[in-house]
């Protein structure tokens, strides 16, 4: 049986891991390679690195960083942030990334998913979706949650799957940063209607939140950032507790 995955997410700006609320007041929390290595030794199942650099220099620093991560870490890792073309994806693949995420650029031009998946395979393409509720509808947002798109969450996730995405990484912008638990009902609906794995993101505050989204929420993986970065929940403790609950964990 495939184990449920625990995935620390590292936001990277100009080579350093940063953390902030709503991208304001960013605080440097460590070195990207060292933190990745530590998480991997702690038992993380996979890592996600998101480049939040806005500048061109920041982007090329990120590609160099991906090479270092690939050389130093022996578990799978996914990278994303600002990928708008097959060429962007190719550079990251060549640098050693196992997967990439597409987000805003795919919302604007869904063919991007098809293009990358047909060249490198579905296993390489994770479709990241940020959404929040507006007038009772889960609407897809772009640009870090700052803009509403015309798309609705469930139909967009379905389309992403049909276009060749290998996984969906859904972040509820209504839950992100609140530490009050994941949007379990939404994950359940996504997970039971899609045939590809679903990664839950946004809202982790305590161990039971993660347990809930992996059981009631039927998510295949749980992603979190600050609870890991600040040592609030050490990964070995988390995995041990999840195992005790009978959840399949490596």
């Amino acid at each position: 049986m495939v184990a449920k995955r625990i995935i620390p997410c590292l936001d990277v700006k100009d080579g350093a891991v940063v953390k902030g609320v709503n991208f304001e007041g960013l605080k440097e929390v460590g070195d990207a390679v060292e933190m990745g290595r530590k998480y991997s030794l702690d038992g993380a199942d996979e890592l996600v690195y998101l480049d939040i650099s806005a500048s061109k220099e920041g982007r090329s620093t990120f590609v160099n960083l991906v090479e270092k991560i690939a050389l130093n870490i022996n578990i799978p890792f996914c990278v994303g942030g600002g990928i708008t073309s097959v060429d962007d994806a190719s550079r990251l693949l060549d640098a050693g990334a196992d997967k990439i995420t597409v987000n805003s650029a795919a919302v604007a031009r869904p063919e991007l998913i098809t293009e990358i998946a047909s060249k490198y395979g579905s296993q390489f393409v994770v479709c990241a979706i940020d959404a929040k509720v507006s007038d009772g509808i889960w609407r897809v947002t772009t640009h870090g949650g700052s803009r509403f798109s015309e798309r609705e969450l469930f139909s967009w996730a379905q389309q992403a799957q049909e276009r060749g995405a290998g996984e969906i990484l859904f972040t509820s912008m209504d839950h992100d940063g609140t530490k009050s638990g994941y949007a379990c009902e939404v994950y359940k609906q996504l997970s039971t209607t899609l045939s590809i794995p679903v990664i839950a993101s946004g809202g982790a505050g305590k161990i039971s939140d993660i347990a809930d989204v992996l059981t009631d929420g039927c998510a295949d993986a749980a992603l979190a950032a600050s609870i890991f970065h600040y040592g609030e929940i050490p990964i070995p403790v988390l995995k041990n507790e999840l195992k005790k609950l009978g959840i399949p964990i490596r």
Binding site: M1, V2, Q123, E167, T192, S195, I196, P197
Partner: peptide, 15 residues
């Protein structure tokens, strides 16, 4: 063949 319990691709850690 994808089923409710078996997502495809088979992706992740297994024994």
């Amino acid at each position: 063949l994808p089923t409710n319990d078996a997502k495809v691709p088979h992706m992740g850690w297994n024994t």
